[in-house]
Design a protein around this nucleic acid. Structure first.
Lengths: 229, 229
DNA sequence: GAGTGGTCTAGACCACCAA
DNA sequence: TGGTGGTCTAGACCACTCC
């Protein structure tokens, strides 16, 4: 067995794990040994093992070596595109309809997400449309102190979703996915029955210590978020 | 500016993108030039740019060079653990309760997911419990021809979820996330009101051309799938 | 303390693909 | 067809950890 490409090394490693030649929980040979056995440089083995480790199948620790994971945690990568791009890539026409836009004091649950007590928050709601049909209802809060031009931007021409992605560099964020049922007003906006099941994403993004924006998206019934393992 | 670690190179690259020194859609310097400018080896720059490309912020093509992405597609990585591990890691007691187990002919929607027409399908349903409370309702179909020991395994002692992860190597799969409302029987199993919003995952895994198993998980109301950007 | 993975280097060759 | 990213090598040093 000689394998001088890191993909070949990875394939061989995966084969041995699947064939139980390297059982779950057991250590695997050191990088140097594998390099010798497979006839390639240690850097090549390192590259391959790093990829396998990222997929969650092996665990690596200095001094302790690498071992096959006992409870492999599958990693799935989600693509989160700008909504306009997502819709247009399906060949549908995109439109955004602004519903409300006001500077106001948020409910405590929102306030808690913005650590800065002096934050002036702009509240924007609107509807994303695909071929004229409601696609998602956006409910967003923006820290106007942390995001320049927030108060002067015309969100009837560009959705806050896209404007923020294009103009505000951020460093981190988190997303939560859940389910809810449509309230009366939500049902009206999305033209679906009250009580219909809706897929929800809650996203908060920040830069440094400052929370920039927090958004809830309610997707019209039937929406599915899809990915590969 | 000298940066001899690939993390430092990545940080500098990200800074320039965020500062619009390298505007969206514009090409960035070649690896060799960057290596010279930053005072490190080209392999180091390559490693850094590869990481940035994986995050979706730049696009790389041979001969054409690298450029800042026009519509950055955010990549979020989801961890998908075995349910038992997920529950126990929260410090709660895990239990699984088998509800039904029968070899039967599936509805067309399920049949369509198993390409092999000769597949003998086992249908298993059960409830995952956390501290005695319903956590998720599992509805699974398994190809008994493709998965050895399917018909002889005692699923009252180990959930099919965990048994499959531990004993069946698979190559690929896909997951879809969506929302639904609890039917009468689902509501009873999950001890929630009928019509309550439920978070749903549909997962199908395969090896080669053969679909091994297809599972739908209905999570009790309030469940949130969470991740970082 | 010593062994393991993590990383950097300098150089080289190759695969791909836009010009 | 030439330039660019993709990769491999051999060697070296370092950082972290487990003994």
């Amino acid at each position: 067995m000689t394998a001088n490409s890191w993909q070949a090394v990875r394939a061989e490693v995966l084969r041995r794990i699947r064939a139980r030649e390297w059982p779950p929980g057991e250590p695997i040979p050191h990088e140097a040994d594998l390099a010798l056995e497979l006839g390639c440089a240690r850097a090549t083995v390192n590259r391959a093992l790093r990829e396998v480790a990222e997929s969650g199948l092996i665990e690596r620790r200095r001094r302790a070596g690498s071992r096959v994971a006992l409870h492999p945690v599958r990693k799935a990568t989600l693509d989160i595109p700008v909504i306009r791009v997502e819709i247009e890539s399906r060949g549908e026409a995109y439109d955004f309809s602004l519903i409300t836009r006001e500077e106001t004091t948020p409910p405590p649950s929102i306030r808690a997400r913005f650590k800065a007590p002096d934050a002036r928050l702009l509240h924007v709601t609107g509807l994303h449309l695909a071929d004229g049909q409601p696609h998602a209802l956006e409910d967003r809060w923006i820290d106007a102190q942390a995001v320049p031009d927030t108060l002067t931007t015309d969100f009837t021409r560009i959705s806050p979703n896209e404007w923020l992605v294009l103009s505000v560099p951020f460093e981190g964020g988190d997303i939560a996915f859940s389910a809810t049922t449509a309230s009366a007003t939500e049902a009206q906006a999305l033209t679906c029955p009250e009580g219909a099941p809706l897929f929800v994403t809650d996203r908060t993004t920040w830069r440094g210590e400052r929370t920039l924006t927090s958004v809830r998206l309610l997707f019209a019934p039937g929406y599915r978020l899809h990915t590969r393992l």
